[in-house]
């Protein structure tokens, strides 16, 4: 079954076409990796899907509903949730309260929301910082906080924007394990990531973006070996 359908999605910023005619069908329970050089339009694609930016053209259908042009909060409420590459903590609040804000979507009382949030915090291994001000977290902690807030909403489609970036290699393995677990639990995941080993370890399909356009889409190994992809993107690394 298709959970997300993207048709002819375009976003132009005065002259620059950041996302250029993306067409995509994401299956339920799928793990889709998204790669592409800096400035390829990956983050912008997420912003279009989750309602932070209105598209210039095209259509987004989530679980059969046309959500094109919906406001971000409405989209999030339907179960399509994103994290931010540039982390956006609520700085005056503790880590627990940051996550509880998201838990409140399902738990009205503060007590219940905070209890739910604590469970999520433990799941992303942030319990060391439960009562710290979120503004004081190191990068790795902020990445986990982004993930924790998104998870607290119990999403059905999770858009993860470079949640592994900024983690030292030793921290990556448990995070990758956690993402795998989420996937096993039934969450559909779209993951933007530069760390190829992680992407290849997790993704069932891989989308390669280049200058806003969709360069390749398919089985990860096949995509990575595609000469067009190697030239446009991987070529930079392997040159």
């Amino acid at each position: 079954m298709t959970i997300l359908e993207v048709k002819g999605l375009v976003k132009s910023f005065s002259g620059l076409t950041a996302v250029n005619d993306i067409n995509l069908e994401v299956r339920e329970h799928e793990f889709l990796g998204i790669v592409g050089p800096n400035g390829a339009g990956k983050t912008t694609l997420f912003s279009l899907l989750s309602g932070q930016l209105p598209p210039s053209a095209g259509k987004v259908v989530f679980e059969g509903r046309d959500i094109t042009g919906w406001s971000a909060n409405k989209v999030a409420a339907t179960g399509l949730v994103r994290t931010f590459q540039l982390m956006r903590p609520f700085e005056s609040m503790s880590v627990l309260d940051n996550v509880a804000i998201a838990s409140h979507a399902r738990h009205r009382s503060r007590r219940a929301a905070r209890r739910h949030a604590l469970g999520v915090i433990e799941r992303v291994q942030l319990e060391r910082y439960v009562n710290s001000l979120s503004g004081s977290l190191p990068t790795a902690g902020l990445k986990r906080l982004e993930l924790a807030r998104a998870l607290a909403l119990e999403p059905r489609l999770l858009l993860l924007d470079e949640v592994l970036a900024g983690l030292v290699p030793a921290e990556r393995a448990p995070m990758i394990e956690l993402l795998r677990e989420l996937h096993t639990d039934g969450v559909t995941v779209m993951l933007i990531e530069h760390i190829m080993t992680a992407v290849l370890a997790l993704s069932e399909r891989l989308l390669v973006m280049h200058e806003g356009a969709q360069l390749a889409l398919g089985e990860p190994r096949a995509v990575v070996d595609d000469p067009v992809v190697i030239e446009a993107y991987l070529g930079e690394d392997y040159a």
């Binding site: 309602g51 909060n73 999030a76 409420a77 949730v81 609520f90 700085e91 804000i101 807030r149």
Partner: peptide
């Protein structure tokens, strides 16, 4: 308070 701290992040959480 979340909206005060970061409106975009708050909206992304369904608020």
């Amino acid at each position: 308070q979340a909206i005060r701290d970061d409106e975009v992040a708050a909206a992304s959480l369904g608020i």
